[in-house]
Design a protein around this nucleic acid. Structure first.
Lengths: 217, 217, 217, 217
DNA sequence: TATGAATGAGAGTTCATTCAT
DNA sequence: GATGAATGAACTCTCATTCAT
């Protein structure tokens, strides 16, 4: 649980920033954010100090403040970065699949960490974001917008499947997307807590079962 | 968002402790915990200071420490208190219902705050507990045990319904309980965030729809 | 260095109170003081809390306060107890010796811990007393009086030796007593610090050498 | 006994830092340490709070912590500073004297505060250091090293005197140094306590008498 | 642009002490 | 006479932030 101890495991393996930003400073900024996400996932947002991010990213504290201003601004920037990155990732992964049923499963699996492409600490960052969104308007906007993106992604896929006849004709894309998202969020809980009563394999199966009842003819 | 400002709204309406404990200190202890739960729900556990609980409950800081020792121990005690209280509440509410289908709906509705008997901030406390459980073994144990209780409650009801023929004969109580719980946890999210895309009434309907597909013949 | 850890070594072996006080409470009081001395020697007076003495002696904190009043009063009482006990001890030990030269050595050896009769932590308690005496009038009085006792004891012995011809005729009892006491106090330092440059055996020899130069013909 | 009251007497007369360090912070750091030594000497190390040093030195508490980290580290740094300063002082004073006998007296007189060059509270700081050294390994190392320096200084001087024939030919520098140091430490006690039975002039004379017996032919 | 130095605000914790029984 | 409950005071320490360079 200690960042400095896990340096060998995950915090050092910050995924290389996805897009090659033009400006050099943008490059460094993204690097910092990727590291910040790791710290947030590891410690939790409330417990994430400038000092932590500084230590992990190698960037001096005052430089972090120069870049991001507030501590809270840094946190929000990190969440925005992660949200975008995850969305980019899942879109890329989904685009490679033709079958709507497989696409739905991929999208759902992504957040919870089933998929290999899943970003580290994706679900933990989600929980952190929820918490802040409950109490901060700016975060709330951000989270709701992100939620809408995911919902749209799912709805679109569902609509595809309905159109192609792969899914039940009476499946309402918007409704099912909301239900699927809820299932995903809910089934993620025991996974992250490593609840022995709901091992990952069972969780996946239970999730897919619900999805099937909602979608498959 | 400020506790002292909202004192008129909810923080003062600490629910009267349920059982009249024999010891005077036990009485006061529970009172403090009820108040602490309100603060935690309002501010979040990380942001809950001794000073906040002291102010809201009227008990001096050093007395809080005398009672609970650590700040973290206070937090954990509050969660334990809330978990037990909610469980007691939902059990009482469910016991009054004969129809398994209505019982299932009542139990599910309880957590998310649909039901009138629902404890204040029940869902917020849940999220807080999840977060801590991710990083603290003691919390994890507590949360998993509590999860098991709810799962058991649901499974039991499902089994009743299957036995009475109210539910589909092929409904596996354990499986459905896990799925229902996931759905409840997941659908709570947009409710708490007051996501305009998923208003409470829709959330309830979407939840019940899934439950119906899982249970009803 | 931890009291609770050394419970097996020394803190439990509180020497049985010397005199059989008439009152039962006096008995318990002495017992507490003997324990308090151990804690003071182990931790230092400043770091000696009511809680420590309570834990070691088994007497509740409020009872300690009921007995001794202030924390400082407890400390002072403990020092008085130890000082008297040590003085009683060394007088008894010295009385058993006929030869003044042996008596002098016995008295000197007592404080530093050479002698078997030496009380536990005698020297540590001395240092603690010095420190407090520098800043507190009451302690100062106590320490000076105790110093005078030891000086008198030594002077008396020196006078005996001079009278009996065992010591140099020109040895001034008062002067030599002061010098001997200084030597004792000074040579105790490396012993307590376990200075490898001045092992106990060497310390004893160096001390006796000086005494010999002062006293022997 | 109160620092704020005695500000006019001694605490304001912080000796100007000896060497003009290059860095500005080094300058300020030394200044703080000089002040800290005064507080420690006045109050005792255990009773020395950040607030005291802050008030006397005019440096904010958080800055003290920024400089030294811990309270204990501040204390240790202060002792190191004082030890070095005293050693430098006595070496300078001794270097000015040709006669070994005078040099020995000067060195011995220094610690106890006879000499004019003596640092304020030198002996009090010694006692504080002893106490901590009994219970803390780091302090012990420091104190033993410092002790060794003083012993070496004395032994060197004795060897000089023996070589020059000023001292007895059979005087063993190492032995005599140990004995002299013990005498110095021991005779300092009544001086600091202002024991009326051993006024400073008598203490000095008693000390020199012993030294003479050890060294002079 | 980037960074080290410095500092104020705030929090947890310890501990002696008071009070009621 | 003896003891548990309760509480205020004091202190250390962490951390975000400001300022100067």
């Amino acid at each position: 649980m200690d960042v400095s101890d896990t340096s060998a495991s995950s915090l050092d393996s910050a995924p290389a920033p996805v897009r090659r930003a033009g400006r050099r400073s943008g490059r460094k900024r993204e690097d910092v954010l990727a590291h910040a996400c790791l710290v947030i996932g590891e410690r939790g947002a409330d417990a994430t100090r400038f000092a932590d991010v500084s230590e992990v990213s190698g960037v001096p504290i005052s430089t972090l403040q120069y870049y991001f201003g507030n501590r809270e601004d840094l946190l929000l920037a990190a969440f925005r970065y992660a949200a975008q990155r995850d969305l980019d990732g899942v879109r890329a992964a989904a685009a490679a699949l033709d079958d709507p049923w497989e696409r739905v499963q991929k999208v759902c699996a992504f957040v919870v960490g089933f998929a290999d492409e899943a970003a580290p600490y994706a679900w933990q960052l989600w929980v952190e974001a929820w918490r802040w969104a409950q109490r901060d308007a700016e975060w709330r906007t951000e989270v709701l917008a992100d939620n809408a993106e995911w919902r749209g992604l799912l709805a679109e896929t569902v609509a595809d499947g309905v159109a192609s006849g792969r899914f039940r004709a009476d499946a309402d894309p918007g409704r099912v997307a909301r239900q699927a998202l809820a299932m995903v969020d809910g089934i993620g809980l025991p996974i992250v807590l490593e609840d022995p009563a709901v091992p990952p394999e069972m969780a996946r199966e239970l999730l897919i079962d619900v999805l099937a009842r909602l979608l498959l003819p």
